[in-house]
Design a protein around this nucleic acid. Structure first.
Lengths: 167, 167
DNA sequence: CGGATATTGTTTACGTGTGAACAATATCGA
DNA sequence: TCGATATTGTTCACACGTAAACAATATCCG
């Protein structure tokens, strides 16, 4: 077995084969590149993508319930608990228990949280503007449109959480 | 129905704000959906995306060096070590140290590994064919094309690891 | 040659995210 | 009303992936 047979692929160029057309594989690579770009552009501000997301969505939805937020961001409630506690410890967000339902928790930006997002927003804007890599602006716009459709943002009817339609 | 009132986004519909146009955020959601579909379609075969990827790429590149593989799949060598040792323990792949460079390791599919990939390939093909969610086939093809460009597969010249061009 | 430097895979410590079990609270139905 | 059931957030154990330090080997250059 150790013999290369049809001569092993010892060169530096690897053949992806059918994987190179796999949507899942391409999405994984794309996300890795996207995150790397984020850290390169925002690294100096010491902010993680998850924190950025939470701040932005809380700025738009003050008082949103923790579970709703987790569902919208597609992360599990267990993990949301950790993030929220961490950011509360950092003084960025506040948690309140509403009168109507003592199980739940509502989330709000603190003054420091609002200051934080105001501080990072410009850099995030610049990052987003140039985060299209080798794509033209038109291609980036089309990519965003297709991704929105793929994740179910712009699908016409219900399709709920798991449309799964294969058309 | 507590009625959200003027403040407090207590309803179940959350406003994503500018995040809804963020390429990074959309890519994250898309990858989550893609992986979920993978597990739904392939779950019965008890195979993870990483294992699938390794088997497929080793089928195309017998004898590839471990580090080359890690670089191509954009995972760190440390993690590659773990995966490879695990799959070797499962009898799916074999590791050989070449004469020319005793530091490196070459990877090969075992007979069991080839059997394994032959067993899962049909399901993977079916999965890929229908994994386009609400997208039409034409849209899915365009999405793949744009992702390939974004991750640098089809870029003409160098652009290396970090083209960063903003065009 | 032979010492400085680089590369390769491994180990260890750690961060991020999930699944399952759980306690507290809310809601539904006889 | 009150017992059964569902929901909400939390905790714990664990998978996945990374960063940094490391040992072994290879390469470069005086």
């Amino acid at each position: 077995m150790p013999d290369a047979g049809p001569d092993g692929a010892r060169d530096n160029n690897l053949d992806y084969g059918p994987l190179g057309q796999s949507l899942g594989f391409l999405l994984r690579l794309a996300q890795l590149r996207s995150f790397a770009t984020f850290y390169k552009d925002m690294g100096a501000l010491d902010i993680r993508p998850g924190e950025m997301t939470l701040l932005m969505v809380l700025a738009e939805n003050p008082g949103v319930r923790q579970g709703i937020l987790a569902k919208a961001l597609r992360i599990k409630r267990a993990h949301m608990t950790k993030m929220v506690h961490g950011m509360e410890a950092d003084g960025l967000i506040a948690r309140t228990v509403p009168e109507g339902d003592k199980r739940s928790v509502e989330l709000w930006l603190t003054e420091a949280g609002r200051a934080r997002i105001d501080a990072v927003r410009p850099d995030f804007g610049r990052h987003e503007a140039k985060a299209t890599g080798p794509l033209t602006q038109a291609e980036a716009a089309e990519l965003r449109r297709l991704l929105r459709r793929y994740v179910g943002f712009d699908v016409p009817a219900d399709a709920g959480c798991d449309g799964g339609g294969m058309r």
